[in-house]
Design a protein around this nucleic acid. Structure first.
Lengths: 149, 149
DNA sequence: TATACGATCTCTAGCCACTTCAGGTTCAAG
DNA sequence: CTTGAACCTGAAGTGGCTAGAGATCGTATA
């Protein structure tokens, strides 16, 4: 009884966890719901109480999300970190796959940038001379260098 | 009667429009539903029949979507192209805003790339030596150069 | 002309990763 | 003891589609 109360005493409610990790309260509850975070202890009034392990796990999740890992990927990484040994190859594969994806996105966004520059330049502000090239340029796919037609 | 039938005759069903523009049938219907495409004529059996104007409008939409314009932005551009004159400034503003966003994304993805490279390199495949740095790296936010903590 | 079969129809639900809302309960400070 | 912020659950909404069920349409062939 005393022990339980003591333990509970050094646990924090969800709002403090949110402030500490920079993850919104609703998002934390969502992560619990989809199984990224284990169900925490509860106060007598049924409120969530979190400890050190939760902070660390949530920090891990946040970092990975900031890096753009999809939730499934994070789930996999968490599974690996839970039972260590044999984990490395798989973790490496996940990271490399994700890196590939990021590079793909960069490549694609670069060509978008080029074409948007072209389109925006087509009418760079002159009120009189413009009639309006931007809309023409968007209507005409033939001039652009985009791959996915 | 005759005229109506004749007009209908040179219109195409949704599947042909899909093939011509590279936009899926379901997506075309969706665009109609959200007001990007006007409601087309219908056959006697209630099937959609599209003409030239629809092809052009859909091509415009597809091109803009390929460029990553959000649907709301496209709606605005379409409104502009519908009533010409005075449109240019606004169209230019929309394009430039989108270009800014694309550049932001590129910048952000570049730093992700750098950090993912670091993380992936932390354990580049050696089975013996690894124990596993990837998960450590992900757990530790302090080493990374990402801005949004 | 009958039939078969692909194309189309509407409506609904699902996807991701949350966010927002409504309507209620708990906790801690004064 | 009262107040008011923090917390609770469950459901619905977001964007931009995608997928499925189950019915109807249109047309090429027998």
């Amino acid at each position: 009884m005393q022990m339980a109360a003591k333990n509970l005493a050094r646990l924090m409610p969800i709002g403090s966890l949110a402030v500490r990790t920079g993850v919104k309260v609703e998002t934390i509850r969502y992560y619990e719901q989809v199984g990224l975070l284990p169900q925490p202890e509860r106060s007598e009034g049924n409120q969530r109480r979190y400890g050190r392990a939760h902070i660390e796990r949530l920090a891990f999740i946040k970092h990975a999300r900031d890096l753009g890992f999809p939730v499934d990927g994070i789930r996999a990484l968490l599974r690996l970190s839970d039972n260590p040994g044999m984990a490395c190859d798989e973790a490496h594969a996940i990271s490399v796959a994700h890196l590939d994806e990021v590079r793909h996105k960069i490549t694609r966004l670069r060509s978008l940038e080029t074409e948007l520059e072209r389109i925006a330049a087509a009418c760079s502000g002159g009120v009189t001379a413009c009639d309006c090239k931007i809309i023409e340029a968007l209507a005409d796919h033939s001039q652009c260098g985009l791959d996915r037609h």
